[in-house]
Each structure stands twice: as C-alpha cells, then as structure tokens.
C-alpha cells in the first residue's frame, strides 16, 4: 500500500528501509556524528499544516529511531536539512541530488560540512532507500 509523504507511516517505513539497506550499512558504518533531521516546510494548501520534522537517529550504519519533531526540535540535531515539499519530492524521485540541491540553496543545511562531504556516499544510499518506499505524493 502506498504511504503518504510526509507522514509518520512513511517515516517509519523509511527507517525500516534504511535498516534493510546493505549499501547504507556499509557506507554509514563509521557514522557517529549523531542524528540527522529532515524538515518538510509547512504548506497548508497541500495539507502540510505545520513543519514536518523527521528525526533520524543514525549511528554506525543503522537508524536506531525515527520520530516526528517540530522545526525547533529538528534544529537541535547536529545536522538539519530544511526544504519545501516540492524539493523533497524531487529528491525522493531522484530528480535532485541532495548535495547539488544544497549547493544551489534548494535544500538548506545546518551542520558540519566536511562531515557531510565525507559521507556523501551514505547520503546517496539514504536517498536510494526512499525510492524503495511505495510513496503517495500529496499532489498526485
């Protein structure tokens, strides 16, 4: 069954997909830099009434926990990436490579850049995991 993006159900499935990914397990094996928060900015006309933060507790190649958080909480994560629904949809559909999106200012990153760059392969694997989720987009 297709899961709506963004939703708690989608986020939980994302956690499962991350933990099922051999690629991420390998690429993120040495990651100890802490949780990563992804924030989908509010867009009431699409039914996203408030900022939707996904707190992913990533550690050594696994996602220990995924929880919905507010923007304020998300910004407390060592790494926080913020963008609007349309951009995240592009990322999930692999139409926008996340690092390229950050360079162009389409995805706003808060966090240590060298760490992100060092784990660019892991970030690719995380995107790959989203494509394995049967996703229902709000505007489709």
């Amino acid at each position: 069954m297709a899961l709506t993006f963004p939703s708690v159900e989608w986020m939980e499935e994302y956690r499962k997909q991350i933990n099922a990914s051999e690629g991420y397990k390998k690429a993120g094996a040495t990651w100890t830099a802490g949780p990563v928060a992804l924030v989908i900015s509010a867009k009431p006309e699409m039914g996203i009434n408030e900022d939707f933060g996904m707190w992913l507790d990533l550690h050594q190649g696994v996602c220990r926990e995924a929880k919905k958080v507010s923007l304020e909480e998300a910004q407390k994560a060592p790494f926080c990436i913020i963008s609007d629904y349309a951009r995240w949809k592009q990322v999930i559909k692999k139409e926008l490579e996340p690092v390229k999106g950050m360079m162009q200012g389409k995805l706003k990153l808060k966090g240590d850049l060298p760490t992100i760059v060092r784990y660019v392969k892991a970030s690719q694997e995380l995107v790959e995991c989203t494509t394995r989720i049967e996703t229902k987009f709000l505007d489709e």
């Binding site: 950050m102 360079m103 200012g105 990153l109 850049l113 060298p114 760059v117």
Partner: peptide, 14 residues
C-alpha cells in the same frame, strides 16, 4: 551561499 561556505571550510578540494 553553500558553495561559498563549502569553499571556505574545505577549499576547492571539497
């Protein structure tokens, strides 16, 4: 801008 930040923190080797 992110390219500026990236270049500042890691140089062109970023």
């Amino acid at each position: 801008a992110m390219p500026g930040q990236s270049l500042r923190s890691m140089g062109t080797d970023a």
